[in-house]
Design a protein around this nucleic acid. Structure first.
Lengths: 206, 206, 206, 206
DNA sequence: CATGAATGAGAGTTCATTCAT
DNA sequence: TATGAATGAACTCTCATTCAT
């Protein structure tokens, strides 16, 4: 992904790891509190005091585990990005061709978004707060989509030529459908939405 | 859309309108400075002092025209939302069917995004800073797309049934393609991208 | 009044007098607006813009007539102080002795306070905003009371020796009774209150 | 009144209480600094920076203990109101009748005012800055006076009928005598002033 | 490891006053 | 005289981060 050059997806290992069981519990509590807080109020209206008080730990303890409010946010974005991946990956192999698989992936993503509505607020805000993590998220997502499409093209399932733009287009569709039918409203079945896309991808609208 | 042409969406309702020519110049300077500042640094890293100093006016003058930093941001979002609309609308009528028209719309949008790269930072951040303006932007955008698709369906140009999900899918594609090929990189011609989408919408990928 | 040394009761003639009829009307409008504004909101929560807009004149016009917000306030305090005096003085001569006269004075003052409830807010706040005007008000008031009492003592109406403390005591009674039965509530007739004081002054409570 | 003795009226309900000894010291320093600052300069000319710098603590520490400049002022008014009460109450029981007792109360109040000259500036300004605390102060003061007078009337010490107006009259006398002979000048002995009032209340001026 | 008081840079906002028109 | 835009000093309050206990 040429445009993604410069993204730093490898900034793992910052922040301090807990060494005791008690420490592990405190860290967990902080992460959960942060996810709720950032999801509800956004990065700037969230405060470290509020996060620690949600977590039931002392203010100072925050800095035992994180270097800064930003570094916690970054950790959260990476975590959620990974979770999406882990949630969607298992449904990709299955009956049917790649277009069917993309439909299943969208359905799985919609389900995930419904269970974790805060994901949009957090990942979207990463554009401003943690640009590297944000670029990493969308960069790897689009790369994965493109690889799948290329492989399908090679297998003759798609009438190419497939290029990067297709992957961006599909990611955009998924993101906005996830926003609309995952977060903003749940009035339609995820399979229904997946079917709409499936038809579009298979035969177009014409 | 036509009804919107020329109307100053920036100063609707809130904030005070200037009564003299000098005041009009000051207001213009503030809006321009704000667009640049917010586009470069985002809402929270932008400051009113910095905006006024860019604009070459005194700090206090800001509050002659705007109630708050937020209200300026809101005004800007509405303004840019209107500009996108005004930029895209003229290309919609033309030769070919609705799918061709959507392709032209995307190309026009890409050109606009290239000329106004700050639009993404500003409209995206509105999700957090001015949620109402943000919802209004995407809400009217999707409505307009849906109307066009429905009309085309009625004309028999599209093999329905068309529903809201199609509009969201198309908006998502456009937004992410605009981000990728309008803002992040300009290595491909806008017609090229439009053609990719055109093919997808016309015949799918199958 | 030894303690009042230093008060500047003579600062008349500051501010600019209007020379035209139109100017006279503007000045009048400003004074009326100021009285209402200061009475409602107090000095610090009142603003020059608000006063001028109440008066229906332009902001800049304020400085055509007053040097500053404070100087307007000072003018108002002197004005109201004079009005109290002018309202009470006429009732002093009359049937009965000096104690009767003091009762009539209190009744007249209560009536005035009921018609001009803002007087308390304005004169009380003068302690902080225009100390000289405040000292002048209470200084001349107490002097006038003391003179009357001394004269009555000379006439044999009072069993002396009368001194300054009596005057302060009576002024204090009047001020607090005016606050209670003039401003805070009007449930008792002013003659009723005057009668209570009359009895106290005539025979005490014992 | 007795029930009030020793209780910290300063920290009732609002504002945060310190949990450590160090915190207690900081809070104390802030309160002392505030009393001096407000007493000298009044509420509006006092600033939080100035108060904290007097107290020798950082600006931010102010907000560890108080919600706002106003809330500190309110706390101070309540505190001083309580202190007056606690200072005067002990002298009420004693030899003689209720009129003697009121004289002792006035003398005690004068002494207190001499030691705490800032009390007038602070309580008077509360009319504008903390109206509730101001009303509470004068309301409870007048109630207590009225109760004492009624009880004395019942015991046959006073020739009634006593009503609320008497209490307001006496409070007014005390307040203005306290201002004149407690704050503005100390040239007369407090017993002297008390004696003047004693005679007035016992036999009137007639 | 946990605690919470202390710190202070920095931000947004107000408004009396000035002044060009 | 009247107007209202322009000015900028001054102020309150926030909050991420540090550190002594």
């Amino acid at each position: 992904m040429v445009a993604m050059r410069g993204m730093d997806a490898t900034m793992t290992g910052e922040d301090k790891a807990p060494r005791t069981e008690r420490g592990r519990r405190t860290l967990r509590a902080l992460l959960d509190a942060a996810r709720a807080e950032f999801g509800e109020k956004g990065f700037h209206d969230s405060s470290v005091v509020s996060i620690t008080s949600r977590a039931g730990v002392a203010l100072g303890s925050f800095y035992t585990y994180f270097d800064s409010k930003e570094s916690l946010f970054r950790a959260l974005v990476k975590d959620m990005s990974g979770q999406v991946r882990d949630h969607v990956a298992p449904v990709l192999p299955g009956v049917g061709d790649q277009i069917d698989a993309e439909g299943r992936a969208l359905a799985a993503f919609l389900l995930f978004a419904r269970q974790h509505k805060e994901i949009y607020r957090i990942i979207d805000e990463a554009e401003f707060v943690a640009p590297d993590a944000w670029k990493a998220h969308y960069g790897t997502t689009v790369e994965r989509i493109l690889e799948r499409l290329k492989a399908a093209e090679t297998r003759g399932e798609l009438s190419g030529p497939i290029d990067e733009a297709h992957a961006w287009a599909i990611m955009g569709m998924n993101v906005f459908l996830g926003l609309r039918y995952g977060v903003l409203g749940e009035e339609r079945a995820v399979e229904d939405i997946a079917e709409v896309v499936n038809r579009m991808l298979r035969k177009g609208l014409g």
